[in-house]
Simulated scan of single mutants.
Amino acid sequence: MNKITIIGAGRVGETTAQILAEEELCREIALMDVREGVPEGIALDILQMAPFFEFDCAISGSNDPQILRDSNLVIVTAGLPRKPGMSRSDVLEANVRIIDGVTDQIMQYAPDAMVLIVSNPVDTLTYRVAQRTGWDRSRIFGQAGVLDASRMASFIAQETGFSALDITTMVLGGHGDTMVPVPRFCTINGIPISHFISAERIEAIMERTRQGGAEILALRKNSSAYDAPGAAVAAMVDAIVNNRRRLLSCVALLEGEYGESDIAMGVPCVLGERGMESIVELDLNPRERADFDRSTSAVRADIERLRSLSLP
C-alpha cells in the first residue's frame, strides 16, 4: 500500500501512526487534524524515531483536507472521547456531525480509498459513513471486535497463566455494553477454554470484556485507551496491506447475514487486499443468539437516534 491517512491526531491516531510506521505497512503516512500544528508536530516526532526502529516511510501532517489525496486507506479516529461514566453512545450526536464533515472530505479528495472507522459509537458511525458515501460495503468497515477479542484474550491469559500467543477469542455484536463474547469459540491452542476455566469465571471474564474500555477509562480518568486500540487498527491494516485474508471480528454492513440488514455490527470478517471481502456466519446457540439480538437492538436504537437528529 502506498498511502494511509489518519484523520484525528489524538492519542489513538498518534499510536496508530507510530505502529504503522514501525511495521512499515505503507510508504507514506499522513496525519490530519483540525488543531493547528498538532499533526505536523506528531509527524515530526514519529519521524525522529526512524533511526531507532529502522523505518523510512514518509510521514506528514496538516490541517488541510487536501492531504487526503491519493490515499489508499483512510483511518478515522476523529471525534470527542467519552468521559468516565459515559457510554460510547453518549457521544453520538457530537461525533456524527464531525464524521459527516470528514466523510465529505474523503469523498472529495480520496474517492477510491477504503475507510476504517475507529471513532465511537463505531457501529453507528460505520453505518452512517456507508449510507453517506453509498460505497460498496467492502470499502467501509469499523474496528471493534479485534480490540474486544484481544482484551478477552488478555483476561484469559491472566486467569490461566498461559501465553496470550496461544489464545484465540471471538467477540460479536455492538462495541458497547451489549457486546457478545462467545466463549464457545474461544480456545487455548485449540483446546476450549472451558477445559481450563470454570463456568463462573468464564462469565466474569465475559463481563470484564464488556467493560474493558470503561475499566481503563476509570483508572486513567483523563484518557480512554489508546495503546491497544492502535495495535488493533494496525492488525487490521496488516491483514489488508499483506492480503493475509485474516478472519477478524470487524464492524461490517450486514446484508442478510445473521438475519439482519440495514445495520452495521461486529461479525467475523475476512480482511484482505480488497478490504472486507466476506462475512462468516456462525451457528449461534440459543443463548448466543439472544445476546446477539439484544446487541442488535442497542445498535438499532442508536441508528434511530441518528435518524431523529436534524442532519443534512
Rank of each mutant, 00 (worst) to 15 (best):
G145P: 00
D302M: 13
F55A: 05
A9E: 08
S198N: 11
E288D: 09
A21N: 08
V96S: 12
R287F: 10
G266W: 00
V122F: 02
F141L: 10
T126A: 08
V241M: 06
V96A: 07
T160F: 06
I240D: 00
G213N: 10
A144R: 04
R139F: 06
L92Q: 10
I197Q: 03
E54V: 12
A199F: 07
E200Y: 09
G161V: 03
L306S: 13
A9Y: 10
I59H: 06
D136F: 07
N222T: 14
A30C: 14
V76M: 06
T133R: 07
M170Q: 05
E36A: 15
R139W: 05
L147F: 02
G272N: 01
I7F: 00
P268G: 04
D64N: 13
V241L: 10
A130C: 08
R208W: 06
T169E: 03
R11I: 10
A110Y: 11
S89L: 05
V102F: 03
R128W: 15
G13V: 08
M107S: 15
K3I: 04
E277Y: 03
T160C: 11
S308R: 15
R97W: 02
G145N: 02
I7T: 04
R132S: 13
M32D: 01
I202Y: 02
A110G: 06
I279K: 06
A214H: 10
T209M: 01
V115W: 00
I29C: 10
S224I: 13
P229Y: 08
M236I: 14
S278F: 01
G79A: 11
G134S: 12
I19Q: 13
A214F: 09
G8M: 11
V96H: 09
S62L: 07
E273S: 13
Q131S: 09
V118T: 08
A228W: 09
V122N: 02
V171C: 00
F53Y: 15
I140G: 03
G266Q: 03
L248T: 01
P268E: 07
L247W: 05
N63Q: 15
A231Y: 12
I117N: 05
A149V: 09
